[in-house]
Structure formats: structure tokens, C-alpha cells
Amino acid sequence: MSAFVTAGAVAGLYGTLWAYFVRLIAPQDFGFTTAIDGLVTAVVGGSTVFIGPVLGSGFLTMVPEVQRAAGIDAGWIRPFLASLLLLVVILFLPGGLASLIPRRVTMAASGEAHADSGHAGLAQRVHPVPGEPVITLRGVDKDYGGVHAVREVDLAVTGSEIVGLIGPNGAGKTTLVNMISGLVPATSGTIEVLGVQPGQTSVHRVAAAGVSRTFQHSKLFPRLSALDNALVGAHLVSRPTFIRRLLWLPSARRDEQQSLQHAARCLDRVGLAEKSAVTASALSYGDQRRLEIARALAADPSLLILDEPAAGMNHVEAQALSTLIASLADDGLTVLLIEHNVGMVMQTCSRIVVLNFGEVIAAGTPEEIADDPAVVEAYLGSAEDEEAR
């Protein structure tokens, strides 16, 4: 929204200055050809980098000058070249001419160099102590018409706990964490997370309270680097630089450098420091899942919700992820984990809650859950069933 409003203001200023300069406004000055020139300028130069439109407009401005210098008077050359260049860029260089500049690679290296140099001035959240309530659910229901996704769920999670949420597909696990994170409101019951009430509070306020999560399906920005993806999650702990960037204030660059260092530390925490300059689409599936965790950690959360983070990982990767989650709890984070890798859940979690058809059928330590007949029948299966399979 800020970018849209600022672009409108710049366009209005341009129109005013144009009228003052030429002393006459004619309809053809703002015709269809002018609109196309603006589109070509943005696409050819690259609209995601500040220097991009400058490169695009510089190219289009040079075309008629070269024509005049060569003594060629053919009005069709400029639109022909613009159209041809637009097609070539869309097919072979989607980021425009500016994407050829390795801008973020240098910043990534700078961020890595300072990955261990303290906290770069970014405020750290005070996490709930062990025993302090983090999540409190009382009689929570979620209905979709005649479908009861969650029924009468009571749940309490305290500081530094790693709580596993398991159950068959369709048991209501993702619906439950969607309510906890504020994405969907509960039909009835009360939810309190880190002092706020999701469903009755805006989602961004729930995040600001200290809730971060990953999703069942990867939601990364595929064209951005790993560092840029992690940087997205840091907006809650970073100072806004938009206005200061427009005014070319040095403090904006300093704050952005601090944010880059913070994002680099989060990448290092999940083992992706050496791949900070790699685009998200070029990472392996396991690395993409870890990158999502790094982005969630960049918001400095007190509660981290992980929705099937080990999906698609092999045994070695799942073991490394289990170690990472345990280390996060040691640092004071509270983790709510949805996972179908039962072995990983049993090894990682201090407590496990089992859902089936939207209801809690068991809750306790991993040992208690493994020996619970209701859980064995509904989800884990017996040894004889495993042998038969």
C-alpha cells in the first residue's frame, strides 16, 4: 500500500512538472503509447530493484537519440525495439536488466560475516519462563456447516515446552493451529495466546505478540534468495526504513544492515548460512522447510508453530531438525509441533496431544501416549498391524 501511494504521488508530481515545463497539456502526451512506455521501462529495467526503472528508461531514451545520430528517420523503430525487448525480457530475464547486478550476493556475504557479532541492536523478546502460560484453550469448537472440525478442545501449553500434536489425516490438527495463530476464528470457546485472543484480534497483532508459524505446504518466495526470505520475517523486529529510504537518510542503510545480519544469524541457526545467496526455488525440499523455520525465527517469536516441518525429509534430515527444535526450547522458545513422523515426535516432544475426529483422545508424555490403547487403535497401530503391513 505504501509503495502504491508513493508511486501515485510521484506520478502526480511528474504530471505537474511536465505541464510547467511544456506550458501546454495535450491528450496525446498521456496516451496509450506513453502507458506502454512506462510498462516497458519497468519490466525491461526490473521493477524489484531501485536502479531497474533507471536502466529501462535510459535504454528507451537512447533509442531515438541513436536514430537521430545515425540519420534514420523511422518512427516504427522505437516501438518495434521496445516490443521485441519486452518479449525477450519476459521470456529469458524475468527480473529485468537489474537482475544481472549481484546486489544481494554482496549483502549476503556481509550478513554472514557478522552472523556471530552479537544481536546488531535488534531488540530481543523476553520469553515466558517454564510454567508460565503460553496457550490456553477452553472448550474450543470449530464448525464448517455440518462438519465439526474441532470439538470441545482444552489445551494448556507453558513456557519452553515442546508439545506434539498428532493424529490421523483430517483429525483437525491444522484447523486447531489455525485458530491458535488467529487465521480462523473459533466457533465457540476461548483462546488466549501470549496475552492476546486470536480470532478476536487482528492476525498481525497475534504475530506481534510473539507467534510465528510455518505451514503444511511451502509458502516461500521462490525468486528471492534465502537471505531475502528470512529478511521478510524480520519486519516485526526491524525499524521501518521506507520513508527514510525515500529521503536518502544514512540511518536507513544502517538499520537495513542490522536486519540483514539478524536474518543471516537465523539462516545460520538452521544450517543454511552457506546458501544465503541461493534462490529459494533452487534449494532442496528439506532446505526449503528449514528456510521456512529461519523466516519464522526472524520474527523473534516466543511461540513457534511448526506444521509438518519434517514432511519429505529423510531420516538424517529429520534427526537434525529434531536437534534444532530441542535447542530452540533450550533457548526459551515454546514449540507446538504437528508431525506425522511419530519417531521424531516421540524423541523431540516433552508432551504429546492426540486428536481424532476433532477431539482430544489422549494427552501425556511420549511413553504414556505410546502405551495408550485408544491412541494405538486410532493412530499408531499395534505391532501385529505393522507386521501385517
Results as ranks from 00 to 15, higher is better:
253 R>Y: 13
104 R>S: 15
217 H>E: 09
251 S>G: 09
387 E>G: 01
36 I>N: 01
171 A>Q: 04
138 R>L: 11
156 A>Y: 06
248 W>A: 14
281 S>N: 11
86 L>T: 11
276 S>W: 01
47 S>D: 02
188 S>W: 08
230 A>R: 02
314 N>H: 09
290 R>S: 04
157 V>W: 00
216 Q>P: 01
326 A>T: 04
175 T>I: 15
133 P>L: 14
83 S>Q: 00
99 S>T: 07
126 V>R: 10
61 T>W: 14
119 H>I: 09
379 Y>S: 01
157 V>Q: 04
211 V>D: 00
134 V>T: 12
66 V>I: 15
136 T>R: 15
60 L>H: 01
25 I>S: 11
222 P>G: 03
124 Q>D: 15
280 A>H: 04
84 L>Q: 07
1 M>R: 06
156 A>V: 15
213 R>V: 13
285 Y>E: 01
381 G>M: 01
162 I>Q: 06
94 P>E: 06
229 N>L: 12
107 M>F: 12
232 V>C: 08
156 A>T: 14
238 S>A: 13
333 L>P: 00
290 R>Y: 01
363 A>S: 14
207 A>V: 08
374 A>C: 02
120 A>T: 04
209 A>W: 03
212 S>V: 11
135 I>E: 13
46 G>A: 06
383 A>W: 02
106 T>F: 11
386 E>L: 10
340 H>C: 03
326 A>L: 00
86 L>A: 12
144 Y>N: 12
213 R>A: 10
261 Q>E: 13
100 L>K: 11
208 A>C: 12
190 T>P: 03
280 A>C: 09
250 P>W: 03
29 D>F: 07
123 A>E: 10
143 D>K: 04
355 L>A: 05
368 E>H: 09
92 F>L: 12
279 T>K: 13
40 V>Q: 02
20 Y>C: 09
77 I>P: 06
194 L>Y: 00
349 C>E: 03
305 I>S: 15
95 G>R: 14
367 E>W: 00
88 V>C: 09
225 S>K: 05
314 N>D: 10
216 Q>T: 05
50 F>D: 11
117 S>I: 12
199 G>S: 07
75 G>Y: 14
82 A>I: 00
173 K>H: 08
196 V>M: 00
165 L>W: 07
143 D>W: 08
36 I>A: 08
61 T>A: 13
339 E>F: 05
125 R>N: 04
101 I>R: 11
79 P>V: 04
315 H>V: 12
109 A>I: 08
73 D>Y: 10
235 H>V: 12
9 A>K: 13
43 V>Y: 07
136 T>K: 14
357 F>M: 06
113 A>V: 00
358 G>H: 00
80 F>R: 03
380 L>S: 10
269 R>Q: 14
73 D>N: 08
184 V>D: 15
172 G>W: 08
320 A>Q: 10
188 S>P: 05
185 P>E: 01
253 R>D: 14
284 S>R: 06
106 T>A: 10
299 A>K: 04
252 A>L: 03
